[in-house]
């Protein structure tokens, strides 16, 4: 058949058809045995999670209940003073707001820029498809620090863009594109794009070229095919990409720190300052807990949204 032959799906499978995985071992009572075996398989992961995540978070929560005494001394106690200090200070509300705005900005920009790429990568029938996908995510091979310095070289006062603009006489003094929120966001978007591309590629599972062809054959123009079929079907992937970039952006530290010029106040940098400069560990821990809560809230929202897409 020709190369353009439509892929064959399994449309006949109803949701209930997805049968349970077969028992690992035959024999009587294997169901409960299998359950125990599955649980046993989880244990190494659970131990890792306990040691590397749950215990540190608990320790951090405990720390957030301590107090910051005179001369910066750490006072062991049970107190919500640090939370009060954060939540009653408009500055920290501003910090939380900045963090969310930067997260949304990065996520939106990354999704808008990654979407066409991901769509192309999913659809292409080129024999170079694997190579192209690898290229799209290759930036992950370089550390975020190196790529941030790369962006400093591009956006800095003597960077590529300003040099060109100055040489062409478009501007007389360099544009301030580094050492502020703008530079941090631009760099962060590029640094996080591979994640959104990956998330989208994996989230575009329901997209099938035959669906777009079917819409076309029913009289839908290219634009209508996109708005009525492609977009709704890729929405779950878009949401996943958005959420992934969002959580990575609001927890990003290196890029805002290196490119913020001390003008970007977000939770991650504040946590760092409180932990390492002011030595107010209880406050740093309280901020970190708040960041965790923000994460949790958005993941909850995401799952709601995805559920709604699945049903509606």
């Amino acid at each position: 058949m020709s190369a353009a032959k439509t892929t064959q799906g399994t449309p006949g499978a109803a949701p209930g058809d997805t049968s349970r995985p077969a028992p690992l071992l035959p024999g009587r009572g294997n169901r409960s045995r299998t359950r125990w075996e599955l649980l046993a398989l989880l244990i190494p992961g659970l131990i890792g999670l306990l040691l590397a995540f749950i215990l540190p978070v608990l320790a951090m929560f405990r720390m957030s209940l301590n107090e910051h005494g005179t001369a910066g001394a750490l006072v062991e106690t049970i107190s919500i003073a640090s939370y009060q200090a954060v939540l009653s200070d408009p500055f920290y509300w501003q910090v939380i707001w900045n963090t969310l705005v930067m997260g949304f900005g990065c996520a939106l920009a990354a999704v808008v820029l990654s979407y066409p790429l991901a769509l192309f990568l999913v659809r292409t029938t080129s024999k170079w498809k694997g190579v192209l996908i690898a290229l799209a995510i290759a930036p992950l091979l370089t550390s975020a620090v190196a790529r941030t310095f790369g962006w400093i070289a591009i956006l800095g006062d003597q960077g590529m863009i300003n040099s060109v603009l100055l040489a062409l006489g478009v501007v007389e003094t360099p544009l301030r594109m580094n050492n502020n929120m703008f530079g941090s966001t631009v760099a962060l978007v590029e640094i996080l794009m591979p994640y959104s591309i990956l998330a989208m590629i994996s989230g575009f599972g329901r997209l099938n070229p035959a669906l777009e062809e079917a819409a076309g054959s029913l009289g839908a123009s290219k634009f209508k095919v996109f708005t009525k079929v492609t977009l709704p079907l890729t929405l779950p992937g878009i949401f996943t990409g958005f959420l992934l970039v969002f959580v990575l952006a609001i927890s990003a530290f290196v890029t805002p720190r290196l490119m913020g010029g001390g003008r970007v106040f977000i939770l991650a940098t504040e946590i760092y300052n409180e932990a390492t400069q002011t030595l107010n560990w209880p406050l740093a821990s309280a901020l970190a807990m708040i960041l965790l809560v923000v994460f949790g809230l958005f993941i909850l929202l995401y799952q709601r949204a995805v559920k709604r897409i699945d049903q509606g």
Binding site: A214, G216, S217, G219, A220, S221
Partner: peptide, 20 residues
């Protein structure tokens, strides 16, 4: 003439029903 202006009806092997 582009596909959407041909006014034909097509049934695909996978049926290509819109899942949403």
């Amino acid at each position: 003439t582009p596909v959407h202006k041909r006014g034909m009806g097509m049934v695909f092997q996978s049926y290509a029903l819109f899942p949403h």
